[in-house]
């Protein structure tokens, strides 16, 4: 060892070895399922997040202004469409109110617990994206809400187009969002999404497990054989995984194939949200569940 150290070249090799071991150790530590960040991490991230807020938002406004000018021509058509949607909404609203009252009455009669009643009563926290990671394999986004605003790990993040991702870690004033383009079945820290089809929530089921980066599509696996799933259907979260709340739009079905062992089907899903130039996103806040029941464990 002394002989090794005395020679300059070998000292360099030794240092490289030590650095490599430290590197593996840090990675191993960070890959494990961490519940909370350490305080230096929190301080660093909050400070950077605070500074980056000054830049990202104005940049978005300026970019948005130019896009708006380009969009002026399409506004008329969009207005027409929106008017139609609004009419349909007014009709549906009446039915919805009836069904809601009916549902509440039935829940009361069946003695639902408070937790069961509140389970799907989500609130949406409006957040601004502050910055985007410059790493092709880790497109984490930082948003300007943190644990002080009630954001917690594993909350879903959506924008008006659909599901964006999941909160990966929180600091007091910022949170980091892992987009669904990082979904990967084999990855040690990725959650699969339990999904269903809009309009047939009780009949269809599948698991969105992996995002194929090469094609830009999510793959929905474990679809039962007798599922009447069709191309063009809208995929939403089913909420049965208890990580992602139910009813968040994910994308549309593009194709359907026979799955791995020919027992189930696999479908490719085109995500409905675009992951570039995000400004405003919503964090879906699930109501506090104080009495944790054994059924709350994720799938």
């Amino acid at each position: 060892m002394i002989g090794l150290l005395s020679f300059f070249r070998n000292k360099r090799v030794l240092m490289l070895m030590v650095a490599f071991i430290v590197f593996i150790a840090i990675i191993g530590f960070s890959l494990s399922d961490r519940k909370e960040l350490t305080w230096p991490e929190k301080v660093l991230r909050d400070t950077t997040g605070y500074v980056q807020m000054w830049f990202y938002k104005p940049a978005g406004w300026i970019a948005g202004f130019f896009e708006d000018i380009g969009d002026l021509r399409r506004v008329y058509e969009e207005n027409e469409q929106l008017r139609m949607t609004a009419a349909a909404y007014a009709r549906d609203k009446v039915t919805y109110n009836f069904i809601k009252n009916e549902n509440e009455r039935l829940q009361k009669e069946l003695h639902f617990t408070e937790q069961q009643k509140q389970m799907n009563n989500y609130s949406y926290l409006i957040a601004q994206v502050v910055s985007v990671s410059n790493d092709a394999n880790n497109r984490a986004m930082i948003i300007n809400l943190g644990s002080k605003n009630g954001v917690k790990k594993n909350m879903a993040v959506v924008n008006i187009d659909g599901l964006i991702g999941i909160v990966n870690s929180v600091t007091p004033f910022t949170a980091s969002v892992t987009p669904i383009t990082e979904l990967n079945e084999t990855s040690p820290n990725s959650n699969s999404i339990a999904a269903t089809i809009e309009g047939r929530e009780n009949e269809s089921f599948g698991i969105l497990s992996t995002y194929n980066k090469e094609t830009g599509r999510l793959s929905m696996t474990r679809i039962p054989e007798n599922d009447k799933l069709e191309i063009g259907d809208t995929v939403i979260t089913s909420g049965s995984g208890n990580i992602y709340p139910r009813g968040l739009r994910v994308g549309t079905i593009e194709s359907k194939q026979v799955g791995e062992f020919a027992l189930t089907y696999t479908a490719t899903v085109k995500p409905s949200a675009s992951f570039d130039h995000l400004t405003e996103v919503f964090v879906v806040s699930v109501p506090e569940i104080d009495d944790s029941e054994p059924g709350d464990v994720e799938e």
């Binding site: 490289l16 650095a19 490599f20 590197f23 840090i26 990675i27 530590f29 960070s30 890959l31 960040l37 230096p40 991490e41 660093l44 991230r45 950077t48 997040g49 910055s131 990671s133 410059n134 790493d135 394999n137 880790n138 497109r139 984490a140 930082i142 990966n168 870690s169 980091s176 892992t178 990082e182 990855s187 820290n189």
Partner: peptide, 21 residues
């Protein structure tokens, strides 16, 4: 390391190691 910590998504240390090296 700053990059790794601020954009912590999957693992810490990759940029730290590679940039230095």
């Amino acid at each position: 390391l700053l990059q790794d910590v601020v954009y912590y998504g999957h693992l810490i240390g990759a940029h730290f190691f590679l940039m230095g090296l």
